[in-house]
């Protein structure tokens, strides 16, 4: 895996999608941890307010970012490596990197058992 293979994510995610699935392997942006194999996630456009990965210190309110492009993973065991936060509200848990623990990189809904990984918070690397 080299950085040259890393596919840049701007606003148009079409180049990452093949038949509605993730074309490439999904990695953490900060460490080499492999999160999801290719074609395991289904592209879904759904608006969700995801807290920023780093928050201002001594700040009461949580700053969020409205993101709409996610890989929906129907079964948590389809992930290679992933961490789940404690439940924050009505069955919602945040997803984090299992190795370096940065996050949230997405969220998990305990009611539907589905996980959603934000395309803009992970790295997509072409399978070699």
């Amino acid at each position: 895996m080299t950085d040259d293979n890393t596919i840049d994510v701007k606003n148009n995610f079409n180049h990452l999608i093949t038949e509605e699935k993730n074309k490439h392997t999904v990695y953490c942006t900060k460490c080499p941890s492999k999160i999801l194999s290719s074609t395991m996630g289904k592209h879904l456009r759904i608006e969700f307010n995801l807290p920023h990965m780093s928050q201002k210190k001594n700040c009461e309110s949580v700053e969020c970012e409205l993101l709409a492009d996610y890989w929906m993973v129907p079964d948590m065991y389809m992930f290679d490596n992933i961490g789940f936060s404690k439940t924050v509200e009505s069955g919602i848990k945040y997803l984090i990197c299992a190795d370096c623990e940065i996050g949230p990189i997405g969220w998990y809904d305990d009611n539907t058992k589905q996980s959603y990984v934000a395309l803009s918070r992970v790295k997509h690397v072409e399978d070699s």
Partner: peptide
Amino acid sequence: LFRFSDDAFTTTFISTIGIDFKIKT
């Protein structure tokens, strides 16, 4: 199991919530 703890310097949002479990392959 987890990397972080109640380290006074952690500023990540997640460290305030805590981790439930991990899946590793």
